[in-house]
Amino acid sequence: MRQLTGYAMSAIVIAAVAFAFAPRQPAPLAVTQILADRVQVNALLSTDDRLIAVGERGTLLTSRDRGHSWQASEVGGGRAATLTGVIALSPQVLVAVGHDGWILRSQDGGQRWQETHQDASLGEPLLGVWSGDGQQVVAYGSYGKFLVSTDAGVHWTAREMPGDGAHFNGLDGGSDGRQMLVGEQGLVLRSSDGGQQWQQLPSFYNGSLFGVVRLSASRWVTYGMRGHVFTSGDFGETWQRIDVGSDQPIYGHARLPEDAGLVLVGAGSRLIRLDAQGNLVAIDQRQGLGTLTSAVGLNPRHLVVAGERGVYQGAQQRLASASQEQQP
Protein backbone atom coordinates (compact mmCIF):
# COMPACT_ATOMS: atom_id res chain seq x y z
CA MET A 1 0.00 0.00 0.00
CA ARG A 2 2.83 2.35 0.92
CA GLN A 3 4.51 1.51 -2.38
CA LEU A 4 1.37 2.50 -4.32
CA THR A 5 1.15 5.75 -2.34
CA GLY A 6 4.80 6.49 -3.20
CA TYR A 7 4.12 5.90 -6.91
CA ALA A 8 1.12 8.21 -6.77
CA MET A 9 3.07 11.01 -5.07
CA SER A 10 5.90 10.62 -7.60
CA ALA A 11 3.43 10.91 -10.44
CA ILE A 12 1.94 14.09 -8.95
CA VAL A 13 5.41 15.66 -8.55
CA ILE A 14 6.41 14.74 -12.11
CA ALA A 15 3.16 16.17 -13.47
CA ALA A 16 3.64 19.40 -11.52
CA VAL A 17 7.22 19.83 -12.76
CA ALA A 18 6.17 19.08 -16.34
CA PHE A 19 3.40 21.69 -16.12
CA ALA A 20 5.70 24.30 -14.57
CA PHE A 21 8.28 24.02 -17.36
CA ALA A 22 5.94 23.35 -20.26
CA PRO A 23 5.99 26.16 -22.90
CA ARG A 24 2.89 28.32 -22.70
CA GLN A 25 1.75 31.41 -24.58
CA PRO A 26 1.60 34.28 -22.06
CA ALA A 27 -1.48 36.45 -21.94
CA PRO A 28 -1.01 39.54 -24.10
CA LEU A 29 -0.30 42.80 -22.30
CA ALA A 30 -2.84 45.56 -22.53
CA VAL A 31 -1.81 48.17 -25.08
CA THR A 32 -1.45 50.80 -22.34
CA GLN A 33 1.27 48.65 -20.70
CA ILE A 34 3.65 48.48 -23.68
CA LEU A 35 6.80 49.99 -22.19
CA ALA A 36 4.68 52.98 -21.32
CA ASP A 37 7.07 54.40 -18.76
CA ARG A 38 10.35 53.21 -20.28
CA VAL A 39 10.33 53.62 -24.05
CA GLN A 40 12.06 56.66 -25.51
CA VAL A 41 10.02 58.60 -28.06
CA ASN A 42 11.97 60.35 -30.81
CA ALA A 43 9.19 61.91 -32.88
CA LEU A 44 5.54 62.89 -32.57
CA LEU A 45 3.06 63.59 -35.34
CA SER A 46 -0.41 65.11 -35.18
CA THR A 47 -2.86 64.34 -38.02
CA ASP A 48 -6.51 65.28 -38.41
CA ASP A 49 -7.80 62.72 -35.94
CA ARG A 50 -4.86 61.12 -34.10
CA LEU A 51 -1.38 61.37 -32.62
CA ILE A 52 1.48 59.12 -33.75
CA ALA A 53 4.54 58.40 -31.58
CA VAL A 54 7.68 56.59 -32.77
CA GLY A 55 10.79 55.63 -30.84
CA GLU A 56 13.24 53.02 -29.67
CA ARG A 57 13.00 49.31 -30.55
CA GLY A 58 10.52 49.96 -33.34
CA THR A 59 7.91 51.61 -31.12
CA LEU A 60 4.88 52.81 -33.10
CA LEU A 61 1.87 54.02 -31.14
CA THR A 62 -1.32 55.83 -32.10
CA SER A 63 -3.82 57.81 -30.04
CA ARG A 64 -7.29 59.02 -31.00
CA ASP A 65 -8.03 60.87 -27.76
CA ARG A 66 -5.31 63.54 -27.71
CA GLY A 67 -2.82 61.23 -25.99
CA HIS A 68 -4.88 59.95 -23.08
CA SER A 69 -4.68 56.35 -24.33
CA TRP A 70 -2.49 54.62 -26.89
CA GLN A 71 -2.61 51.58 -29.16
CA ALA A 72 0.31 49.68 -30.62
CA SER A 73 0.48 49.53 -34.41
CA GLU A 74 1.16 46.43 -36.48
CA VAL A 75 4.64 46.61 -37.99
CA GLY A 76 5.74 44.46 -40.92
CA GLY A 77 9.32 43.27 -41.36
CA GLY A 78 9.81 41.74 -37.91
CA ARG A 79 12.49 44.26 -36.88
CA ALA A 80 13.02 46.27 -33.73
CA ALA A 81 15.26 49.09 -34.96
CA THR A 82 14.90 52.51 -33.39
CA LEU A 83 12.62 54.90 -35.27
CA THR A 84 13.61 58.55 -35.47
CA GLY A 85 11.07 60.40 -37.65
CA VAL A 86 7.54 60.26 -39.03
CA ILE A 87 5.48 62.41 -41.43
CA ALA A 88 2.01 62.39 -42.96
CA LEU A 89 1.79 62.54 -46.76
CA SER A 90 -2.01 62.55 -46.44
CA PRO A 91 -4.43 61.75 -43.60
CA GLN A 92 -4.01 58.06 -44.42
CA VAL A 93 -0.49 57.71 -45.90
CA LEU A 94 2.35 58.01 -43.37
CA VAL A 95 6.09 57.34 -43.60
CA ALA A 96 8.45 56.58 -40.69
CA VAL A 97 12.25 56.19 -40.77
CA GLY A 98 14.92 54.91 -38.41
CA HIS A 99 18.15 53.06 -37.83
CA ASP A 100 19.61 50.57 -40.34
CA GLY A 101 18.07 52.58 -43.16
CA TRP A 102 14.66 51.33 -42.05
CA ILE A 103 11.66 52.94 -43.76
CA LEU A 104 8.04 52.03 -43.02
CA ARG A 105 4.87 53.11 -44.79
CA SER A 106 1.25 53.08 -43.63
CA GLN A 107 -1.85 53.43 -45.80
CA ASP A 108 -4.43 53.42 -43.00
CA GLY A 109 -3.42 56.35 -40.83
CA GLY A 110 -0.83 54.44 -38.79
CA GLN A 111 -2.66 51.27 -37.75
CA ARG A 112 -0.54 48.95 -39.93
CA TRP A 113 2.92 49.54 -41.39
CA GLN A 114 4.83 47.87 -44.21
CA GLU A 115 8.60 47.93 -44.73
CA THR A 116 9.68 49.66 -47.95
CA HIS A 117 13.44 50.00 -47.37
CA GLN A 118 16.11 48.58 -45.07
CA ASP A 119 19.91 48.29 -45.09
CA ALA A 120 21.26 46.66 -41.95
CA SER A 121 24.64 45.93 -43.57
CA LEU A 122 25.76 49.54 -43.17
CA GLY A 123 24.04 50.11 -39.83
CA GLU A 124 23.61 53.80 -40.64
CA PRO A 125 20.56 55.51 -39.14
CA LEU A 126 18.16 57.71 -40.99
CA LEU A 127 17.44 60.72 -38.78
CA GLY A 128 14.51 62.39 -40.47
CA VAL A 129 11.96 62.40 -43.28
CA TRP A 130 10.28 65.26 -45.15
CA SER A 131 7.89 65.93 -48.02
CA GLY A 132 6.55 69.12 -49.50
CA ASP A 133 3.82 67.75 -51.74
CA GLY A 134 2.91 64.31 -50.40
CA GLN A 135 4.42 62.58 -53.44
CA GLN A 136 8.15 63.30 -53.47
CA VAL A 137 9.66 62.28 -50.13
CA VAL A 138 13.23 62.52 -48.84
CA ALA A 139 14.81 60.58 -45.99
CA TYR A 140 18.16 61.74 -44.62
CA GLY A 141 20.62 60.85 -41.92
CA SER A 142 24.12 59.85 -40.90
CA TYR A 143 27.18 60.23 -43.11
CA GLY A 144 25.35 62.25 -45.72
CA LYS A 145 22.77 59.55 -46.43
CA PHE A 146 19.98 61.01 -48.57
CA LEU A 147 17.21 58.87 -50.11
CA VAL A 148 14.52 60.10 -52.49
CA SER A 149 11.11 58.64 -53.34
CA THR A 150 8.93 59.95 -56.16
CA ASP A 151 5.97 57.65 -55.46
CA ALA A 152 4.98 58.63 -51.91
CA GLY A 153 7.49 56.41 -50.15
CA VAL A 154 7.01 53.12 -52.00
CA HIS A 155 10.42 53.01 -53.74
CA TRP A 156 13.67 54.74 -52.79
CA THR A 157 16.92 55.72 -54.52
CA ALA A 158 20.10 57.19 -53.04
CA ARG A 159 21.32 60.64 -54.05
CA GLU A 160 24.79 62.12 -53.66
CA MET A 161 24.80 65.35 -51.65
CA PRO A 162 27.34 68.04 -50.79
CA GLY A 163 28.60 68.20 -47.22
CA ASP A 164 31.55 65.76 -47.22
CA GLY A 165 29.57 63.01 -45.55
CA ALA A 166 28.42 65.03 -42.56
CA HIS A 167 25.32 63.87 -40.71
CA PHE A 168 22.06 65.45 -41.90
CA ASN A 169 19.81 66.18 -38.92
CA GLY A 170 16.92 68.39 -40.05
CA LEU A 171 15.14 69.62 -43.17
CA ASP A 172 12.25 71.96 -43.91
CA GLY A 173 10.86 73.79 -46.92
CA GLY A 174 7.82 75.02 -48.78
CA SER A 175 5.81 74.69 -51.98
CA ASP A 176 7.83 77.46 -53.65
CA GLY A 177 10.86 75.16 -53.85
CA ARG A 178 12.87 76.79 -51.07
CA GLN A 179 14.35 74.17 -48.74
CA MET A 180 17.05 74.09 -46.08
CA LEU A 181 18.98 71.10 -44.70
CA VAL A 182 21.14 71.29 -41.54
CA GLY A 183 23.59 68.94 -39.89
CA GLU A 184 26.77 68.49 -37.91
CA GLN A 185 29.62 71.01 -37.69
CA GLY A 186 27.25 73.86 -38.54
CA LEU A 187 26.41 72.46 -41.96
CA VAL A 188 23.62 74.32 -43.79
CA LEU A 189 22.55 73.43 -47.34
CA ARG A 190 20.04 75.52 -49.29
CA SER A 191 17.92 74.76 -52.35
CA SER A 192 15.71 77.09 -54.38
CA ASP A 193 14.40 74.52 -56.86
CA GLY A 194 12.69 71.89 -54.74
CA GLY A 195 15.85 69.99 -53.85
CA GLN A 196 17.23 69.45 -57.34
CA GLN A 197 20.35 71.55 -56.65
CA TRP A 198 21.89 72.29 -53.26
CA GLN A 199 24.24 75.07 -52.20
CA GLN A 200 26.40 74.84 -49.08
CA LEU A 201 26.25 78.10 -47.14
CA PRO A 202 29.25 79.63 -45.35
CA SER A 203 29.59 78.29 -41.82
CA PHE A 204 28.38 80.55 -39.00
CA TYR A 205 28.51 78.00 -36.14
CA ASN A 206 30.97 75.23 -35.37
CA GLY A 207 28.58 72.86 -33.58
CA SER A 208 25.87 70.47 -34.69
CA LEU A 209 22.50 71.81 -35.78
CA PHE A 210 19.63 69.42 -35.01
CA GLY A 211 16.66 71.12 -36.66
CA VAL A 212 15.50 73.87 -38.98
CA VAL A 213 12.11 75.54 -39.36
CA ARG A 214 10.74 77.63 -42.20
CA LEU A 215 8.61 80.50 -40.86
CA SER A 216 8.23 82.16 -44.27
CA ALA A 217 10.04 82.16 -47.61
CA SER A 218 12.71 84.44 -46.15
CA ARG A 219 12.57 83.82 -42.40
CA TRP A 220 14.07 80.64 -40.94
CA VAL A 221 15.10 79.28 -37.53
CA THR A 222 17.76 76.66 -36.79
CA TYR A 223 18.86 75.19 -33.44
CA GLY A 224 21.19 72.61 -31.94
CA MET A 225 24.03 71.98 -29.55
CA ARG A 226 24.75 74.02 -26.42
CA GLY A 227 21.44 75.87 -26.59
CA HIS A 228 22.26 77.64 -29.84
CA VAL A 229 19.33 79.15 -31.73
CA PHE A 230 19.75 81.24 -34.87
CA THR A 231 17.31 83.15 -37.05
CA SER A 232 17.65 84.38 -40.62
CA GLY A 233 15.47 86.93 -42.39
CA ASP A 234 17.08 86.51 -45.83
CA PHE A 235 16.87 82.78 -46.58
CA GLY A 236 20.15 81.97 -44.90
CA GLU A 237 22.36 84.73 -46.24
CA THR A 238 22.92 86.02 -42.71
CA TRP A 239 22.12 84.62 -39.27
CA GLN A 240 21.58 86.15 -35.83
CA ARG A 241 21.88 84.23 -32.59
CA ILE A 242 19.07 84.28 -30.02
CA ASP A 243 20.24 84.06 -26.40
CA VAL A 244 18.03 81.52 -24.63
CA GLY A 245 19.95 81.61 -21.35
CA SER A 246 21.20 78.02 -21.35
CA ASP A 247 23.84 75.81 -22.94
CA GLN A 248 21.63 72.70 -22.91
CA PRO A 249 21.07 71.17 -26.38
CA ILE A 250 17.80 71.66 -28.25
CA TYR A 251 16.49 68.60 -30.07
CA GLY A 252 13.03 69.28 -31.49
CA HIS A 253 10.28 71.77 -32.18
CA ALA A 254 6.56 72.20 -32.73
CA ARG A 255 4.81 74.76 -34.88
CA LEU A 256 1.74 76.04 -33.10
CA PRO A 257 -1.55 76.22 -35.05
CA GLU A 258 -3.10 79.48 -36.20
CA ASP A 259 0.32 81.02 -36.87
CA ALA A 260 0.88 81.27 -33.11
CA GLY A 261 4.61 80.71 -33.35
CA LEU A 262 7.06 77.98 -32.49
CA VAL A 263 8.17 76.00 -29.43
CA LEU A 264 11.64 74.45 -29.14
CA VAL A 265 12.28 71.52 -26.76
CA GLY A 266 15.43 69.85 -25.48
CA ALA A 267 17.47 68.78 -22.48
CA GLY A 268 16.46 69.77 -18.98
CA SER A 269 12.73 69.79 -19.77
CA ARG A 270 13.07 73.26 -21.30
CA LEU A 271 10.44 74.86 -23.54
CA ILE A 272 11.48 77.90 -25.59
CA ARG A 273 8.67 79.89 -27.19
CA LEU A 274 9.22 81.99 -30.33
CA ASP A 275 6.64 84.06 -32.15
CA ALA A 276 5.77 83.74 -35.85
CA GLN A 277 8.69 86.03 -36.74
CA GLY A 278 11.21 84.03 -34.74
CA ASN A 279 11.45 86.47 -31.83
CA LEU A 280 11.92 85.08 -28.32
CA VAL A 281 8.69 85.19 -26.29
CA ALA A 282 9.25 83.02 -23.21
CA ILE A 283 11.39 80.28 -21.66
CA ASP A 284 9.85 77.65 -19.38
CA GLN A 285 11.53 75.00 -17.23
CA ARG A 286 9.25 72.01 -16.58
CA GLN A 287 9.84 69.47 -13.85
CA GLY A 288 10.29 65.73 -14.26
CA LEU A 289 10.07 65.47 -18.06
CA GLY A 290 13.75 64.69 -18.65
CA THR A 291 15.23 65.32 -22.08
CA LEU A 292 12.56 66.24 -24.60
CA THR A 293 13.02 65.24 -28.23
CA SER A 294 9.73 66.15 -29.88
CA ALA A 295 6.49 68.07 -29.57
CA VAL A 296 3.21 68.81 -31.34
CA GLY A 297 0.80 71.68 -30.88
CA LEU A 298 -2.81 70.55 -30.59
CA ASN A 299 -3.97 74.18 -30.50
CA PRO A 300 -2.28 77.53 -29.81
CA ARG A 301 -2.48 76.94 -26.04
CA HIS A 302 -1.89 73.21 -25.74
CA LEU A 303 1.48 71.59 -26.44
CA VAL A 304 2.16 67.84 -26.19
CA VAL A 305 5.77 66.80 -25.61
CA ALA A 306 7.70 63.53 -25.39
CA GLY A 307 11.22 62.22 -25.03
CA GLU A 308 13.37 59.99 -22.85
CA ARG A 309 10.57 59.45 -20.29
CA GLY A 310 8.26 58.07 -22.97
CA VAL A 311 4.78 58.96 -24.06
CA TYR A 312 3.11 58.26 -20.73
CA GLN A 313 3.77 60.58 -17.83
CA GLY A 314 2.71 60.69 -14.20
CA ALA A 315 0.29 58.54 -12.27
CA GLN A 316 -2.37 58.87 -14.94
CA GLN A 317 -0.05 57.30 -17.58
CA ARG A 318 -0.69 59.93 -20.18
CA LEU A 319 1.36 62.10 -22.47
CA ALA A 320 3.09 65.00 -20.79
CA SER A 321 1.36 68.22 -21.78
CA ALA A 322 1.95 71.87 -21.09
CA SER A 323 -0.43 74.76 -21.58
CA GLN A 324 1.16 77.53 -23.58
CA GLU A 325 -0.64 80.79 -22.79
CA GLN A 326 -0.87 83.17 -25.73
CA GLN A 327 0.99 86.39 -25.33
CA PRO A 328 -0.88 89.70 -25.76
Results as ranks from 00 to 15, higher is better:
224 G>Q: 07
93 V>K: 02
19 F>I: 01
171 L>V: 01
241 R>N: 14
161 M>S: 05
176 D>H: 05
221 V>N: 12
247 D>C: 09
15 A>N: 06
251 Y>T: 11
42 N>Y: 15
33 Q>V: 07
301 R>K: 15
195 G>T: 11
218 S>I: 05
282 A>V: 10
111 Q>K: 11
98 G>P: 05
181 L>M: 00
307 G>L: 09
201 L>W: 03
241 R>K: 15
328 P>L: 07
91 P>E: 10
91 P>C: 06
155 H>N: 07
231 T>Y: 03
229 V>T: 02
8 A>F: 00
50 R>G: 00
114 Q>K: 12
188 V>S: 07
12 I>V: 13
105 R>Y: 01
33 Q>G: 09
202 P>I: 00
86 V>M: 01
78 G>S: 13
136 Q>A: 09
302 H>C: 05
178 R>T: 01
63 S>K: 03
244 V>W: 14
8 A>K: 03
283 I>D: 10
58 G>A: 07
328 P>R: 12
246 S>F: 02
192 S>N: 12
280 L>T: 03
149 S>Y: 11
25 Q>P: 04
156 W>I: 03
47 T>I: 00
182 V>D: 02
204 F>D: 08
274 L>C: 04
254 A>I: 13
273 R>N: 11
14 I>H: 03
44 L>S: 02
193 D>E: 13
14 I>Y: 05
120 A>F: 09
253 H>F: 09
92 Q>L: 02
24 R>S: 14
270 R>K: 14
38 R>I: 01
191 S>D: 11
314 G>Q: 12
284 D>F: 13
298 L>R: 06
29 L>I: 12
231 T>V: 02
10 S>Y: 14
232 S>K: 09
130 W>H: 02
255 R>Q: 15
149 S>V: 09
47 T>A: 05
227 G>W: 01
282 A>K: 14
83 L>N: 12
314 G>H: 10
116 T>M: 01
117 H>K: 05
224 G>I: 01
109 G>W: 01
312 Y>Q: 14
141 G>W: 00
218 S>Y: 10
98 G>R: 03
208 S>Q: 00
41 V>F: 04
283 I>W: 06
280 L>W: 02
310 G>D: 03
285 Q>L: 00
238 T>M: 04
176 D>T: 02
218 S>T: 11
199 Q>G: 05
63 S>A: 01
236 G>C: 06
311 V>E: 06
241 R>L: 11
14 I>P: 05
286 R>Q: 15
263 V>I: 15
194 G>N: 07
260 A>E: 14
94 L>V: 03
326 Q>A: 15
108 D>S: 08
244 V>L: 11
206 N>H: 11
68 H>I: 00
74 E>H: 13
167 H>R: 13
321 S>T: 14
52 I>G: 00
144 G>W: 02
190 R>I: 04
90 S>H: 10
2 R>Y: 08
